[in-house]
């Protein structure tokens, strides 16, 4: 062996994606920074942000992207139909950039649909999925990630680094935005909460979680690109519909049925507010 590779392991940093988090404070900032920093982020938030940055480079969402891509490209429904026939608003089979241009009006169904709703619609129509089955478990849990969640992740990833441009041309698209805006501000339930209670001002948070002000484009995009996202707690992919449903639950509202019109309207409001911002999802969340 002439040309011996001096293969030296400098550091076999086995970064177990989150079990390691307890051992991480090794390279902490020097203590004085804590006391100074007038524009300081809350210490714990800053720590979590660092943690998230590290993980963003290797977002396990990619694993679901790959699964979704496989379903989109290879899965055949009854009669050999594929997702290539699915029109996400930019023509049959066009995925690139489609995600950031929904919710939009779809003439074939006479409805405004958000991305998740449209994808489920297509999977039922072309791939032979049963809507009842999807509704039985619409969201991922530790046992199973439903196929449509992977497809959504794939479609979302195909719009990475593109500008959000939800259309507001059709009368129904404008209507959806308006309804969404109204629901956003509608106070109800035992806590007399609205979405705006938490998401209508700057600088709010729940425990250590910063809450974006969804009335501002630069903030709305943060919420928009967080989902679909990989949740490290539990380790599975969750979608925008899940986030919305869970916000309803947190407000002690009755939980909406999966893919309901009201959620599409709220997503229209959030997406249109974020228009012009660059989408950097799929996200990763703790």
């Amino acid at each position: 062996m002439k040309q011996r590779l001096s293969t030296l392991m400098v550091a076999a940093v086995m970064t177990a994606s989150f079990a390691a988090h307890a051992q991480q404070p090794a390279k902490k900032a020097p203590p004085p920074a804590k006391a100074a920093a007038p524009a300081k982020k809350e210490g714990i938030t800053a720590e979590f942000e660092k943690f998230r940055e590290v993980l963003e480079e290797d977002n396990p969402a990619e694993l679901f992207e790959a699964k979704g891509e496989d379903i989109w490209k290879n899965k055949k429904g009854p009669g050999g139909a594929t997702m290539a026939q699915c029109d996400l608003g930019l023509g049959a089979g066009v995925v690139k950039g489609a995600y950031v241009q929904m919710p939009r009006w779809f003439a074939d169904v006479g409805q405004v649909m958000d991305a998740e709703r449209r994808i489920v619609h297509c999977m039922v129509k072309y791939l032979g999925y049963k809507e009842e089955d999807i509704r039985k478990q619409p969201f991922s849990n530790d046992q199973r990630t439903p196929d449509h969640v992977s497809v959504i992740t794939y479609v979302a990833a195909q719009s990475r680094n593109l500008k959000i441009a939800a259309p507001q041309k059709h009368a129904k698209e404008i209507e959806a935005y308006r309804i969404g805006k109204e629901i956003f501000a509608y106070r109800a339930g035992p806590y007399d909460f609205s979405c705006a209670t938490c998401h209508g001002d700057d600088g709010k948070r729940i425990r250590t979680q910063d809450l974006p002000n969804l009335r501002k484009p630069a903030e709305a995009v943060k919420a928009y690109q967080g989902w679909p996202g990989y949740r490290m707690t539990g380790g599975f992919m969750l979608t925008q519909q899940w986030r919305m449903n869970d916000c309803f639950r947190q407000q002690r509202f009755p939980e909406p049925t999966y893919l309901s019109d009201s959620i599409t309207a709220l997503l229209a409001y959030m997406t249109v507010t974020a228009n012009g911002q660059v989408y950097k999802g799929p996200g990763i969340k703790r």
Binding site: L5, S6, T7, L8, M9, V10, A11, A12, V13, M14, T15, A16, S17, F18, A19, L55, D58, P60, L63, Y230, M232, G234, G235, F236
Partner: peptide, 27 residues
């Protein structure tokens, strides 16, 4: 790497779901 074994490791249950590993290899 390049036909040469650089890591042989054992892991167990303390590693998270869908884990990420990072290595730096000289040479």
């Amino acid at each position: 790497v390049g036909g040469k074994r650089v890591i042989q490791g054992q892991t167990s249950t303390s590693v998270s779901r869908n884990p990420v590993f990072g290595f730096k290899v000289k040479g």
